[in-house]
């Protein structure tokens, strides 16, 4: 049946992920299927997963957010500067109170950028691609201005130890945070009215408007959500690396979009799932780890991801064409 095709796409891509894991495990059984490798893989993917959960909502509304990586940096810069100024210039020895304020600052900075994106898209009616392309440059510029062009590398040691390296019941706290965000995101998308409206607006914004849904308000909330999650991701990144990483995260936006689309979420809106996004984020991550472990040159990773991505979208397109021909 046509009904479950979006789920079928997800099942296929899940099979690809399983197959990759099996292949790498067979090639290097001593190194790939190990707890250490799994942990490393999960920690490396945690930040991107948080970004991708937000990106899933945006893409289901038939929008896009190119600014997530820059907003992440902006939020982590604001957070790091705020914590340092609270601790008199160097927050390395600061306590939990300072780290908590840092978290709030990161969330607010990210969400504020999301609100701005949302307002420009809905009220000024500039296409999301252009608005977030502008934010992509502007948020990075703002982060560099705030930090005088250099990275801030003093963050509370306690925050690094707990969030950056800490474990709870053997699970890295970074992974735990990403897991909670993912579960909440899945719950919000599939069971609530917020999720239903997200699908409806992506499917047919005019239909949503005519039944009395405030499309403007909802879209602003969706872009605020992705901004908020970028802020959280910025804080996680700060804890992970112990510094703002101004030269990093430049391709986070594309990686998040690739992950979301790989997972069966349609760029045309109205279709998608968080479960798919999880799988879509882990395919590139598994390829990266797998290539390192099996000694394949790392340059193959983006090529392989590109191939899988194009194949997945082609599959999605031909399925839609088949349906529309009915």
């Amino acid at each position: 049946m046509v009904a479950k095709l979006s789920k079928i796409t997800t099942v296929w891509i899940a099979l690809v992920l399983v197959l990759l894991c099996v292949v790498f495990s067979v090639i290097n059984p001593a190194a790939f299927p190990t707890a250490f490798n799994l942990k490393t893989l999960l920690v490396e993917a945690a930040v991107l997963l948080v970004l991708s959960v937000g990106m899933t909502f945006v893409i289901i509304t038939a929008g896009i957010d190119l600014s997530v990586g820059s907003v992440l940096l902006f939020a982590s810069m604001c957070s790091a500067l705020a914590m340092n100024s609270m601790a008199g210039g160097d927050s390395t020895a600061a306590g939990a109170d300072v780290a908590f304020v840092g978290l709030l600052v990161a969330l607010v900075a990210g969400a504020a950028w999301g609100v701005l994106n949302g307002l420009l898209i809905t009220v000024a009616k500039v296409p999301p691609l252009i608005v977030t392309l502008g934010s992509f440059g502007a948020a990075l510029g703002a982060a560099q201005l705030a930090g005088d062009g250099t990275d801030v590398d003093t963050v509370p040691e306690g925050m690094r130890e707990w969030l950056g390296f800490g474990n709870t019941l053997g699970i890295p706290n970074m992974v735990l945070v990403a897991l909670i965000v993912t579960l909440l995101g899945g719950w919000l998308l599939t069971t609530t009215r917020f999720g239903r409206y997200t699908f409806a607006i992506g499917s047919n914004p005019e239909a949503a408007r005519r039944v009395g849904i405030s499309v403007t308000r909802h879209l602003i909330m969706v872009y605020t959500l992705v901004g908020l999650l970028a802020g959280l991701a910025g804080y996680m990144s700060l804890a992970q690396f112990g510094a703002t990483t101004l030269s990093g995260h430049t391709t986070d936006n594309l990686n998040a979009i690739a992950g979301v689309v790989l997972g069966g979420t349609s760029l045309f809106g109205g279709v998608g799932s968080i479960a798919g996004t999880v799988i879509g984020v882990f395919i590139p991550a598994v390829l990266t780890r797998g290539f390192i472990i099996t000694g394949v040159q790392a340059y193959w990773q983006p090529i392989a991801v590109g191939l899988v991505l194009v194949a997945a979208v082609w599959f999605d397109q031909s399925r839609r064409r088949a349906r529309n021909n009915r």
């Binding site: 239903r196 699908f199 409806a200 992506g202 499917s203 047919n204 005019e206 239909a207 949503a208 005519r210 039944v211 809106g269 109205g270 279709v271």
Partner: peptide
């Protein structure tokens, strides 16, 4: 006339 339905729902 154009129905105004959400085809994906």
């Amino acid at each position: 006339q154009d129905l105004a339905i959400a085809p994906e729902l």
